[in-house]
Computed example of a mutant assay.
Amino acid sequence: MTTNVLFHSTPKRWAEYQAPLTRAFAAAGLDDIHLAEDIPAAEVDYMIYAPGGATDHDFSQHPRLKAVLSLWAGIETIIDNPTLTVPLARMVDHGLTQGMTEWVTGHVLRHHLGMDAHILGQTGTWDPVAPPLAQERRVTILGLGTLGTAAGLALAALGFPVTGWSRSQKSVAGLSCLSGDAGLLQALTVADILVLLLPDTAATRDILNADTLAALPEGAVVLNPGRGALIDDAALLAALDSGHIRHATLDAFRIEPLPPEDPYWANPKVTVTPHIASETRAITASEVIAENIRRGEAGEPLLHLVDRSLGY
């Protein structure tokens, strides 16, 4: 029997993913797959999900639907949809993880080495002041999922003392792992550079606010390649203006694209990157999608299932 896989996304993504998905299905031994961007609702078995616009899809119109497979790591726009009752898998793939690790490592090193002063601030003044070694610059990562753990281990391998914080206690060799409210405060107080890699949930929104910013060391740097809703924007701008926070490099925002009038653009202590820290790559993501459909058809547990009680 043919397994119908609906690609529910934009025409641009369909053009990007059609060939890699077809190859991945063949490599996974899925020979009887019908992949299309237009399949009658009643005949859809699996949905690959990455809409470019409206996110209020009515999943109840698909009586045969077995699972929804997101191309995104973040699933905050779909998880509360009351019509979604089948398993939901978020995207975790090695291409996405590698991209995030490279962005985090690159910007931590940029701020650690003070590269902006040399790249952007050429004044003709010879000032041979060397930066401290990595062992003297403390990094805290909020969020010890796949992305946070990978980034933390990469930084630890370079010699940075890395503290990781998560809602529930975790243990990662090479990292100092904390959890809970008391652990959050402790993790912030040792963050010369703070990296936000938490999901967007009710428990994490505005986790970086006036109180938690005040717990950071004077002159700390904030990196946010996670979710825009993690930051109270007004509080961060105030902390930058006061000098308590030295710089913020931000890749995710509450409104995207970031509007031209947003104060982040004009603030000299803010670097904006256009949500490029970790993009889903078609080749590697297609392999994950194919493996999950293979598992679903074989009656095996799906990878990266979302726990709706936790929000990720």
Rank of each mutant, 00 (worst) to 15 (best):
L109N: 09
V288I: 09
V270Q: 05
T85S: 14
A42D: 11
D58V: 08
G95Y: 03
G52S: 03
L21N: 01
I276Q: 10
G228N: 11
R110C: 05
D200C: 14
A24H: 00
P161H: 10
V270T: 06
L184K: 13
T2M: 14
G74I: 02
G143D: 08
P132G: 08
D232V: 14
P257Y: 01
H34S: 03
T83E: 05
L237D: 04
V92K: 05
G219T: 03
E37P: 00
R281L: 10
L223M: 15
A182T: 13
G311Y: 04
P260H: 10
V5N: 02
G121V: 04
A191W: 13
G143T: 09
L96M: 11
G95S: 05
L84S: 01
I231M: 11
V108E: 06
V172G: 07
H275W: 09
V44K: 01
H244Y: 06
A42F: 10
G299D: 03
T97K: 10
G311L: 04
T2H: 13
I33G: 00
P40E: 05
P259S: 06
A134H: 09
G106K: 07
G174R: 13
A202E: 15
V86K: 00
A234W: 09
Y49A: 06
T55F: 12
M47L: 14
S60M: 11
P225M: 11
T146F: 06
